[in-house]
Design a protein around this nucleic acid. Sequence first.
DNA 1: CTGAAAGCGCTAACAG
DNA 2: CTGTTAGCGCTTTCAG
Lengths: 334, 334
Amino acid sequence: MKPTIRDVAKMAEVSISTVSRVMNAPHTVIESKRSRVIEAIEKLQYQPNAFARGLIYKKSNTLGLLIPDIENLYFAGVIRGMQDACIKLGYSLMICNTDRDKERMLSYIDTFHEKQVDGIVYASDVLYPECYEKLTGCRIPFVLVSSHSEEFDVPSVEVDDEKAAYDAVKFLIELGHTEIGMIGFNHDNSVSGPPRYEGFVRALNEAGLEHSVEKVRYANHRFEHAYQAAHELFTDYPQVTALFCVADEFAMGAISYLKDRNILVPGQVSVIGFDNLRMSGMYIPKLTTIAQPIYQLGYRAAEKLHELLTTGKVEVPTEKMEHKLIVRESSRER
Amino acid sequence: MKPTIRDVAKMAEVSISTVSRVMNAPHTVIESKRSRVIEAIEKLQYQPNAFARGLIYKKSNTLGLLIPDIENLYFAGVIRGMQDACIKLGYSLMICNTDRDKERMLSYIDTFHEKQVDGIVYASDVLYPECYEKLTGCRIPFVLVSSHSEEFDVPSVEVDDEKAAYDAVKFLIELGHTEIGMIGFNHDNSVSGPPRYEGFVRALNEAGLEHSVEKVRYANHRFEHAYQAAHELFTDYPQVTALFCVADEFAMGAISYLKDRNILVPGQVSVIGFDNLRMSGMYIPKLTTIAQPIYQLGYRAAEKLHELLTTGKVEVPTEKMEHKLIVRESSRER
DNA sequence: CTGAAAGCGCTAACAG
DNA sequence: CTGTTAGCGCTTTCAG
């Protein structure tokens, strides 16, 4: 059996409250006893039982994270940021992969509830009403990252998707391109899909390139789908010379397709991505992209949740972080 | 306040033991009361408190995972497998990113201990004696994945690294290459580093290519380092025409270097990787590689840990899973 | 079939 | 400064 506070007390020949005190308010216990207790703790490798503590404090010092796909480099970066923030703030982290499946989310929320996580970061997925209801029903505080909600009033951290997409497309236009295509996220199961499309449209309109508005195909978060989407797009519009992809993974899928078709990037087609994944500078060609502060997004989300947990509210409920254009090799003047 | 068993009991007008019974042994309570209780549970959105339960059962139904780098696609795949197994087996998962830092591991083990995880999967890192001591001191059962230990007797799941490396290099040799280089893991902080090097050497020796044995450079798990390692290797041995990389990420880094130097892959140099990451088929050129059953490795590790937890031992303590050569575009006959 | 009561490991008054 | 004691929310005998 694992040693309990009683074992420590016995070994140190003090009462259990004294042991408890050396753990929670060391200076209130006389040196002689304190050192005996500390010694006993070390000898027994004693660790206070988090269940018993949780029962009293009604806190688990654990945060839950609901994330669509851990195998996506974007989310892996977010997790890393969150985890570092959690270390700083004293939380453990429970990560759940939702696969964008609503049932799975709902069931994970139940688990989180049962395990008494102190709060949840809800990443990227659209905030389904059912999830919102359940979360508020359980009274679990939560924040959104890489997402936001029009319907509900929930703190969030993200980039300005519309503006970022606009900047990307504007860059392509300034390069002299007039036939511009896009590979976007489906609008029905993504929250950044619509604003990124709007940014695309705004840049086009501003440049009088309305005719390109229809050169859009949608893909489902993984590069295989982007490969396929690129195939459809270039079959329908072979005249396209520049492509805006709403994710670096899509850019890689599209470039892979173009390569298979022997179309040169950036020789014949310029491609710009979105995210600036860890590997984007290593792709061939190196990806021009809109960088998101991925790590910081995760970090800030955890901080925000912590703020909500400790003060009951957040100063800046919806926060937009800066994006940045990074020009590398996959784009070129027309 | 979250509702407790008392609230449910009150609403259903029964005692708390009856409520407890409908949750744990529904058939032992009469239908009329049972339905009242169930109704109350739903109305209150009641979830039993895992702390209280844990205190009694001395189980958390939570597994811990110690992983070097969540941003590495390889580990992301392992996690995915583990998580699916955990769902099947009824565990939650607590993932911690060690960054290969021993202090960090030790501190995470303390956290796991305190949170009373039922068991731990220790991924890939070398099993430091300090960690082993602590883990056994805490009496937390654990298994290794993508790793093993010579020193200690711990269950493990991995591939046969020596054989896999041998197969990779043999493939290169059969392609007619005689000047073969390698980019490996440092031997001092990786467990698969040495066996993969040995496989390389064995294949070379078997073919009478001993002169290539020294054409090795080491890199530190990320492609930037592999890029640098490739630089050093090709500066010292420009005659190399085939390269064995012990990770796909290394292969990407090396190819990226070669590309920057205008050396064609596979035209002038053939490259073979290791892992078969999710993105390896999307790289340019598509990577020839040794596939590991990444997802299954994670899945099996969780199953093995579960076996250890429930039966107290494992049937097959050290398990090797099958690897497989996948030929794509980055390799070619000499 | 059901309720009362003990107790899991710990903390927090409360006396001394 | 320190020991005793009453719970935290739940499960589990033990009577009835």
